[in-house]
Amino acid sequence: MTTTKPHRLSQQRSSNVTEILTQLVAFPVLGGEGNHAIANWIKAYLDEYGVAYQTVPDETGTKEAIHCRIGPAVDGGIILSGHMDVVPVVGQPWDTDPFELTLKGDKLYGRGSCDMKGFLACCLASVPLLLRSRLKKPVYFAFSFDEEIGCMAGDLTAEAIRDFYDEKPGGAIIGEPTMLQPMVGQKGIMVYTTTVHGSQGHSSRVKQEVDAIHEAARLIVWLEDKMDALIAAGRTDDRFHPNHTSIHVGTIKGGSAFNIIANECSFDWDFRNIPMDDAQAIIDDFQAYCAERIELRRKTFPGFNITHSAMHPPVPPLDTAEDEPIVDLIKKISGRTDVSTVAYAAEAGQFSNAGFPAVICGPGDIAQAHRANEFCAVEQLEGCMEMIERLATFSSL
């Protein structure tokens, strides 16, 4: 590993980041909720500097993504991407108001300070620097919504950038918290609800009816066996921990009494696939097994069925080759050559699929995300500002 020794930012620039982060944290916009309040603040900020931006609304008109370009309309620019929404705080034992940024020692506490409004604040605080720089290649901002409920706007935002600008950006940096270590891979994720529709009757008639709970149990065991079969077949990638595609059932609900055969049972399950495993192939195999069970059990109860609903579209994995120019760039501007991967899902795979080679690199520790007393160290924000400053330098060469 090589590192670049950080220099202290000027007090004014450090203060600007904190002031902007204070404003962003104060917007309690959760994933799934309308986000015009925080988006309007960001747009007003960009207006102050004369930065033209575009908005990308969702189909309900209650949410919008924002993207903009600073610099010339030429190929090879870099996208800085993050999301505006956060996760709930209900039931978490916070020591401070989660929506009021609080400085304690060298840490800034608040919901989203780490995941990932800290990165957004660094981007916005860098606007004056980027405008002053004689950029020969542009820097883009891409701020999305509903990332926390399944990266719902990642495709929308990436495709909007691809289709709006005549030039083609050379890559994207997604600023999820990585302690400013470059990440070139992420797992994908898919979340499903599977519902088994059986027949109802007295529990003594278990062979004459079709118990939905019993059938759901078979499906759950099949999913676990599928995960084990992938591992046994050598479908592993040691860059990740765990090093395989994980398949997990999180909730199950069904039945009304111990002596009534259940006519319905549903369970929520997910898989987080390593890049070598195709998400659709897993789904197809599972549905093929379900079709076998349907054919068999309809001999007993013609109304038997198994249905599925996806909680959100699949989030693709990321697997950026280390010889991609974006990887060389992130090493230079972050000052770190020890690239790695993350197990969580992010929008990086979506940007990659849209044609923008992507890496993940941002301030803060993912261990602080989604928990009470979430924080981002001041030093991490300063390091992120320095990273963007170096990006401006390289974009001016």
Score class of each variant (00 low, 15 high):
His197Tyr: 10
Arg205Ala: 14
Ala216Asp: 00
Val191Met: 14
Val210His: 08
Gln208Thr: 09
Ser204Arg: 13
Val206Ile: 12
Met190Leu: 14
Thr193Ser: 10
Thr193Phe: 03
Glu215Asp: 00
Gly201Arg: 09
Gly198Tyr: 11
Val191Pro: 03
Ile189Asp: 08
Asp211Asn: 11
Thr194Glu: 03
Gly198Asp: 12
Leu223Met: 15
Gly198Glu: 08
Glu215Ser: 01
Val210Thr: 06
Ser204Asn: 13
Val206Trp: 09
Ile220Cys: 04
His214Leu: 06
Val206Ser: 13
Gly188Tyr: 13
Thr195Asp: 12
Ser199Gln: 08
Leu223Cys: 12
Val206Phe: 06
His197Pro: 04
Thr194Tyr: 09
Thr193Ala: 03
Trp222Pro: 05
Leu219Tyr: 14
Ser204Gly: 09
Leu223Arg: 15
Leu219Asn: 06
Thr195Gln: 13
Leu223Gly: 06
Glu209Pro: 00
Ile220Tyr: 02
Leu223Pro: 13
Thr195Asn: 11
Glu209Asp: 10
Gly198Gln: 10
Ile213Asp: 00
Arg218Gly: 01
Ser204Thr: 05
Asp211Tyr: 01
Ile189Met: 14
Ser199Thr: 10
Leu219Arg: 06
Ile213Gln: 02
Ile213Arg: 00
Glu215Lys: 01
Glu209Lys: 03
Trp222Ser: 07
Ala216Met: 02
Asp211Trp: 01
Trp222Phe: 15
Arg218Cys: 01
Val191Lys: 14
Thr193Lys: 11
His214Tyr: 12
Val206Met: 15
Arg218Phe: 01
His197Phe: 09
Glu215Leu: 01
Gln200Ile: 05
Tyr192Lys: 10
Gln208Glu: 15
Ala212Leu: 00
Val196Asn: 04
Met190Asp: 13
Glu215Trp: 00
His202Gln: 11
Gln208Tyr: 05
Leu223His: 15
His202Thr: 13
Ile189Pro: 03
Thr193Asn: 14
Ile213Pro: 02
Tyr192Leu: 04
Lys207Pro: 00
Ser199Pro: 09
Leu223Ile: 02
Thr195Trp: 13
His214Ser: 06
Arg218Thr: 01
Leu223Gln: 15
